[in-house]
């Protein structure tokens, strides 16, 4: 199981990064969404896989009676999913606003903060 997931995580990373290397903002955003899933799956797999048994203690027991899935990575990922969603939304709005103000979705055209051909700063004191 871990082997298949390792290959799948590698694929998620490759696709996410390939999209992020694009110059189009919207593809970068898609890449970031996939990248987030890749990281979550990575954390999940590192905690080892147990099939189908959620970490819930049945009634009548004080501790889980048999092997259950590792709860720790699940707790980490749960919050990570929500946070990566809110960041995704933020980036989406940022891209949208940038498109409105600058009029392009090509990162080569987004040079407001680092304009091309900047001249030497003043040499005085």
């Amino acid at each position: 199981m871990e082997t298949v997931l390792s290959v799948l995580v590698g694929l998620f990373f490759a696709v996410g990064i390939y999209l992020m290397l694009s110059k189009h903002v919207i593809r970068i955003l898609l890449g970031i969404a996939i990248f987030g899933n890749a990281v979550n799956l990575l954390i999940f797999t590192v905690g080892r896989i147990v099939r189908e048994v959620p970490p819930i203690i049945p009634h009548g027991f004080d501790v889980p009676p048999g092997p259950v899935a590792n709860p720790l990575p699940q707790a980490l990922i749960l919050t990570a999913i929500v946070i990566s969603f809110s960041f995704f939304a933020f980036l989406l709005v940022l891209a949208y606003r940038a498109y409105q103000e600058i009029g392009t979705d090509d990162t080569d055209g987004m040079r407001v903060a680092e304009p091309e051909g900047e001249s030497l700063p003043p040499l005085g004191y």
């Binding site: 390792s6 590698g10 990373f13 696709v15 990064i17 890749a38 080892r48 720790l72």
Partner: peptide
């Protein structure tokens, strides 16, 4: 992108082939 994907995949494969320290998970359970 392929090199990164390969790297992450191999890293994960290697990690899962190593023994797992269950101290924390067991504590929580």
């Amino acid at each position: 992108a392929g090199a990164c994907g390969l790297a992450f995949g191999m890293l994960l494969l290697k990690v899962t082939q190593l023994p797992f320290d269950e101290t924390l998970s067991t504590f929580f359970k």
